[in-house]
Write a protein that binds this DNA or RNA. Sequence first.
DNA 1: CCCAAACAGAACCAATTGTGTACTGTTTCA
DNA 2: TGAAACAGTACACAATTGGTTCTGTTTGGG
Lengths: 146, 146
Amino acid sequence: MIRLGKLTDYGVGLMTRMAQDGAAGLTNARDLSGRTGMPLPTVSKILKLLCQAGLLESRRGVGGGYALARDPRQITLGDMVDALEGPVALTECVGDGDCNCAYLADCGLQQQWNGINRRLQETLNSVTLAEMAAEAACPSPQGKGA
Amino acid sequence: MIRLGKLTDYGVGLMTRMAQDGAAGLTNARDLSGRTGMPLPTVSKILKLLCQAGLLESRRGVGGGYALARDPRQITLGDMVDALEGPVALTECVGDGDCNCAYLADCGLQQQWNGINRRLQETLNSVTLAEMAAEAACPSPQGKGA
DNA sequence: CCCAAACAGAACCAATTGTGTACTGTTTCA
DNA sequence: TGAAACAGTACACAATTGGTTCTGTTTGGG
């Protein structure tokens, strides 16, 4: 099915929301939880991961919260997926120098998988958070349906 | 992590092997199991799925087996992934006209997800089984390592 | 000085999914 | 008629993921 995890989906939604609010705004997890309907612990978990990846900056203590660490134009979908799912790796072959497939030892497909994997990464990196947020703000000039 | 299922990985390996054997060859599951080391039931399962998707043709009874249904140049990686994993759908938003996200109702990201999803599909469809098999045959002119 | 707000981190449980196996048909040929 | 081989279903086990809870740690205010 090649599906992203739900946390990733949610995370992108949260980031988009933050980008729309304005990059400078400091938002806390509870506020985002209230606005989106997601459970607070889940929001916390996601924001924490994004922060560890350097996409968000946090401020602790009373009045603290999270803010985008960079301009939305400098944050790509690939960055977010990477932060929430780990590095893209379509198969076990990808990445290392060795093909550790359980069967079909030395399957010979490593090069191809690596190439496909890289193209996938490029696709994800070519979309910025700013673009996501901008288009999301005006979904469709002719209505959201067809 | 964005990883393909193992069955998909195996399936592509099996198809590649069959393509290298020559498109006309009729191979049975037991033979492929023996040559690759995969358990027979697993091989059977994979071949069946590929057959149902129309990528392989089967012949039952004594002397039966599987053969590629089309020329390897007419079979894409996208076809195989589709057969073994179902349609590519990065998020729940993808595909339908409605955004059924649990939270962030009407997240507004549907268009973007659909676009990214399509580009991913195009990437997978741009690689043919013939290419996979050809390059796999001569892994690397300068040795497989670095 | 103490308390509350808010992030940080770890551990944990439940549920879903994926993997692999087994069993029972059904078709074909000798 | 029997054996070879695919077809279909069902199932058990394992791994991953999703989501929660609890316990720190930092910060600001009364």
